[in-house]
């Protein structure tokens, strides 16, 4: 089975904060990591490879330093890595990213399955996986929490829903996005790390993948960010006053958005 896993290098979201006074991003000590959901996608791909044979190619779009996550993927069992990197991709929203990745997949060639994390923790949009499937004109299943059966040609899996899950079947080629319940990603092995140290990666430019310049980067993006600001600050020691009855009345009023 030929599997492509899409992975993204992201800033560790829990460290990123906007300073409410200066409205600047405090990024001191913010580490770059492989998007956590993608780690689960990679783990599933490696398990499918171990079960069915085949190979796993990881694909990432990002600046040149994103080869770090490709290297990490090799140490966890991936066979090859491809990076699409070009200044022209900068400012890409989810549409332009899906387009770019689809072009890169065409360049990679044949595949049976594409795995993506449900979403990236920097944007939390959950749009690139489905978008990529549409661009490639293949079926997709989002939020896969368990792969029940897999052969080289068909997969049966559980798709997480708000009220439980659906059991769905799909024939290859297909694209899946995965949630964290799917598996526990392995720790890289010593052999894997040694292999990763020596690994070399294909770096593809916009021209290499034959991308239309009006469809990539900022010009190719239908959405644009016009403002960035900190969330409303945390109130402190706001103890309500009045009779218990009045306090509860006020509280229910304040919490109305959650009810």
């Amino acid at each position: 089975m030929k599997i492509i896993v899409c992975i993204k290098q992201v800033p560790d979201a829990k460290d990123v904060r906007l300073d409410p006074e200066t409205n600047t991003l405090a990024r001191e000590g913010v580490q770059s990591i492989m998007n956590p959901y993608d780690q689960h996608a990679l783990e599933e791909a490696v398990r499918l490879k171990e079960q069915l044979g085949g190979e796993v190619t990881v694909l990432s779009m990002g600046p040149p330093q994103a080869v770090d996550v490709l290297r990490q993927a090799i140490s966890c069992g991936a066979d090859h890595g491809v990076l699409v990197s070009d200044r022209a991709f900068a400012g890409a929203d989810t549409w332009a990213t899906s387009y770019t990745l689809a072009k890169a997949v065409h360049k990679i060639g044949d595949f049976d399955l594409i795995l993506c994390g449900k979403q990236a923790i920097d944007g939390d949009t959950a749009q690139v996986g489905p978008g990529l499937a549409i661009q490639l004109d293949i079926p997709f299943v989002t939020c896969v929490q368990k792969v029940r059966e897999a052969s080289g040609t068909e997969l049966v899996m559980e798709r997480m829903m708000d009220d439980g899950y659906d059991v769905v079947a799909v024939s290859c080629p297909a694209l899946l996005t995965v949630v964290k319940d799917l598996n526990e990603p392995r720790v890289p092995s010593l052999k894997g790390k040694m292999k990763a140290k020596k690994a070399e990666f294909k770096i593809l430019s916009a021209e290499d993948i034959g991308a239309d310049s009006s469809c990539i980067g900022l010009p190719g993006s239908p959405t644009q960010v016009v403002d960035v600001f900190p969330p409303p600050p945390r109130g402190e020691r706001a103890i309500l006053t009045g009779s218990i009855e009045e306090q509860i009345e006020q509280l229910v009023e304040k919490l109305a958005v959650y009810l």
Partner: peptide, 18 residues
């Protein structure tokens, strides 16, 4: 050495995560 750094990283990750 590089190999020793790798051993440290792996053991560190197992320690922190598991």
């Amino acid at each position: 050495s590089e190999e020793q750094e790798m051993i440290v990283e792996i053991a560190q990750q197992i320690t922190d995560e598991r």
